[in-house]
Design a protein around this nucleic acid. Structure first.
Length: 302
RNA sequence: GGCGUCAUAGCCAAGUGGUAAGGCAAGGGUCUGCAAAACCCUGACUCCCCGGUUCAAAUCCGGGUGGCGCCU
């Protein structure tokens, strides 16, 4: 059975170029694992790889939905798994490249997600209850139906509290009653580039600066002009929500830049925390992060 | 030179006699259908220095140092 190559890690750490190099060596295709690259029209702020940066390699899971559409891990897992399987059946090595750890997990592991889909009306109902009665109230509701899950969650973590409530209401089964075993569906080897924190932050700063030079503000204004609501999921992405906000406040560009840099650094930190827990991940020092080195690791693992 | 004012964690900052709020930054972490989202945890053996008053001082008094403002 074939094996997957995962290239993950923090934003601005050089995943794309590395993945393209590997894909060229392996004569294969890349499957993006990025929750924002899926949107058409969000290019600059998401640092979507340009055609030339893609180096002639086919990239899947990029530009697959419209900005006003919603998307979730479940959708990702469904679509991306199909592509993985297709590539494997062709004898190719799927390369997964991206910084959304949750999406990568959804590909690697057979998660059940509580065996209950998102239910808009249930969510609305609990969101209303949250607004009317507060966090403690809905947390209390969860405690009544699924004490075990409630214990694991913090009262303030309303998103997950509501999701747990949703699972119970939609399926009649407690979230805590469903235990997924995290057994990888595929053999894989994961690599991430391990920049020293300060250097990673410098790279982020530089990249954010470049986004403004390329016209991030115009991109956001165009999306708004096209009628994309600022509350859309895609507009919550770093770079977009800040520009929208600053535009409203009349802040200058340097303020926008600083906020985006800061939020991106926070994001990178969270990504690193997430990937630390991914089994079988190799943290490569920047100077060792080459396609050649990865091929060695990959073959040695075969 | 004189007068006034301020001096608390990397930054902003509350506290004005009873044993150091809070915010930001930074670091650590959680993550099972919104994940570039959402959420959690961590920090001053000490309040510029020295001396004094007091059972007790970041808080009061004296001196010093430094910043700021005004005056000559």
């Amino acid at each position: 059975m074939g094996k997957l190559l995962i290239i993950c890690g923090a934003t601005a750490s050089g995943k794309t170029a590395l993945a393209v190099n590997c894909a060229q060596k392996l004569d294969t295709e890349i499957i993006s694992a990025d929750s924002q690259l899926i949107y058409k029209g969000l290019d600059i702020g998401t640092a979507k790889p340009t055609i030339s940066e893609r180096g002639g390699i086919i990239h899947h899971m990029i530009d697959i939905i419209e900005p006003w559409e919603g998307f979730s891990v479940f959708d990702y897992a469904e679509r991306a798994t199909a592509i993985v399987d297709k590539l494997l059946s062709e004898g190719k090595t799927p390369i997964i490249c991206g910084g959304t750890g949750f999406y990568i997990n959804s590909l690697l592991f057979d998660l059940a997600y509580g065996n209950a889909g998102a239910d808009k009306s249930i969510r609305e109902k609990y969101n209303r209850l949250l607004e009317e009665n507060g966090k403690k109230y809905i947390y209390g509701l969860l405690k009544q139906v699924d004490e075990e899950t409630a214990e694991k969650l913090h009262v303030n973590d309303t998103k997950r509290v509501i999701r747990a409530l949703e699972i119970y209401e939609a399926s009649g089964i407690k979230k805590s009653a469903q235990h997924d075993r995290l057994i990888p569906k595929y053999e894989y080897i994961a690599v991430a580039i391990n920049y020293p924190r300060e250097e990673l932050y410098r790279r982020i700063d530089r990249r954010v600066g470049e986004m403004f030079e390329r016209g991030l503000v115009d991109e956001v204004e165009n999306l708004l002009k096209r009628g994309i609501n600022e509350n859309c999921q895609c507009m919550q992405a770093i770079g977009y929500k800040e520009v929208v906000n600053c535009l409203k406040n009349g802040d200058n560009e340097s303020t926008m830049r600083d906020i985006i840099k800061l939020n991106t650094r926070h994001y990178a930190k969270r990504q690193i925390t997430f990937f630390k827990k991914l089994p079988n991940i190799h943290w490569l020092e920047p100077e060792c992060a080459t396609a050649e080195r990865i091929m060695e690791l990959f073959d040695g693992n075969r």
